[in-house]
């Protein structure tokens, strides 16, 4: 399944806020790079979290190498607007951006579709970008582009941005660009959407909704769902039962003498852990039942701080699963 995903040209990674999509995007980048692919990671909300997961300080709008075979860029709003204008409208770079910086937020948010087009336009531009080396001749700059998208609510309009623009624009340079972008997104051999979820009520509900809406409203194919922070139980029901029986008050004195401690508090804690694991598995089943794509589970890494070490752990968990 991973090979399927990593053989694509473009992967969008989305999910409800807090479901781990940034770490997951970084882990996928590591795995692709290990397979010898030249990877570009795009951080849509430019907060620096994605480069941090790859062990790098915040990155600019130009791709910067952060790990062997992995480059990363962030979609800083002013810079992406400038480039968009330059590429598609041949508007030269402005030297004084200050008034524009303030305006961008306003324009991008008030005129429907502009921000989305900038994002999708950039992704499509990088996908098409060619490089030329003496050894390999002309070939795509990147083998795979991984897009750490915004939280689920926002990604659908982005995936539809091209189609929405087609409705607004009659012809000319914009239309042909937009047609090309739309075709790229719709080709499941080139582009896939992946959804992140947690084994909890609301994240699962959102993942299911996002999956259904993506299928109904866009032409992008949902390739997989990553279920993060799953819990598995280390003990069988019988083992827990044995503990409960042995922890009965009548054995307390003997426990103190033979084991040097108390079993009572052990029981509560272990039973809670069991129930949590069961709840996690129930949510996983609910998720699988509602999706048409494979679900890859990633076990919980206890309170791991975001960073390269954690990303490597997640990458290992992905290959092990």
């Amino acid at each position: 399944m991973l090979d399927e995903l990593l053989s694509r040209r473009v992967l969008f990674v989305t999910g409800k806020g807090g479901t781990g999509k940034t770490t997951l995007s970084a882990a996928l980048a590591l795995l692709a790079a290990r397979r010898g692919r030249r990877v570009l990671c795009i951080e849509v909300d430019a907060k620096g979290a994605l480069p941090a997961c790859l062990g790098s300080p915040p990155v600019p709008f130009e791709p910067r190498v952060v790990q062997p075979n992995i480059s990363c860029l962030a979609l800083h709003p002013e810079a992406s607007l400038q480039e968009y204008l330059r590429l598609y409208f041949h508007v030269p770079r402005f030297t004084r951006m200050t008034p524009l910086a303030g305006v961008f937020d306003f324009v991008a948010n008030s005129v429907p579709g502009i921000k989305d087009m900038l994002i999708v336009g950039k992704v499509a531009y990088e996908e098409k970008r060619m490089s030329s080396t003496p050894r390999s001749g002309a070939r795509p700059q990147w083998d795979i582009i991984i897009v750490d998208s915004q939280a689920s609510g926002h990604v659908l309009p982005q995936l539809n941005a091209a189609r929405a623009m087609l409705g607004l624009v009659r012809g000319g340079i914009i239309r042909s660009q937009v047609e090309w972008i739309d075709a790229c997104l719709a080709d499941s051999r080139r582009t896939l959407l992946t959804i992140c979820a947690l084994p909890e009520e609301m994240p699962v509900a959102e993942a299911l909704e996002l999956h259904d809406r993506a299928r109904a409203e866009t032409r992008v194919t949902v390739g997989a769902c990553f279920l993060n922070r799953t819990l598995r139980t280390a003990l069988t029901p019988r083992q827990v039962r044995v503990l409960r029986q042995a922890a009965a008050p009548e054995h307390a004195e003997a426990a103190r003498e033979h084991l040097g401690g108390e079993l009572g508090p052990m029981v509560e804690g272990i039973q809670l852990a069991q129930r949590l694991a069961e709840a996690s598995q129930a949510q996983a089943r609910r998720l699988r039942a509602g999706l048409s794509c494979p679900v890859l589970e990633i076990p919980v890494q206890a309170r791991a701080r975001p960073g390269l070490a954690t990303t490597r752990l997640i990458a290992s968990a992905l290959t092990a699963g």
Binding site: V242, L259, G260, E262, P265
Partner: peptide
């Protein structure tokens, strides 16, 4: 709870003795 941690530690470090005691207390 430290006393529970003590008991747990024993079960890990002396699994055979632990198992013997658990078998007797649990009745299986």
């Amino acid at each position: 709870d430290g006393r529970a941690a003590d008991a747990a530690g024993f079960l890990v470090e002396h699994p055979r003795a632990g198992a013997a005691w658990l078998s007797e207390a649990a009745g299986e």
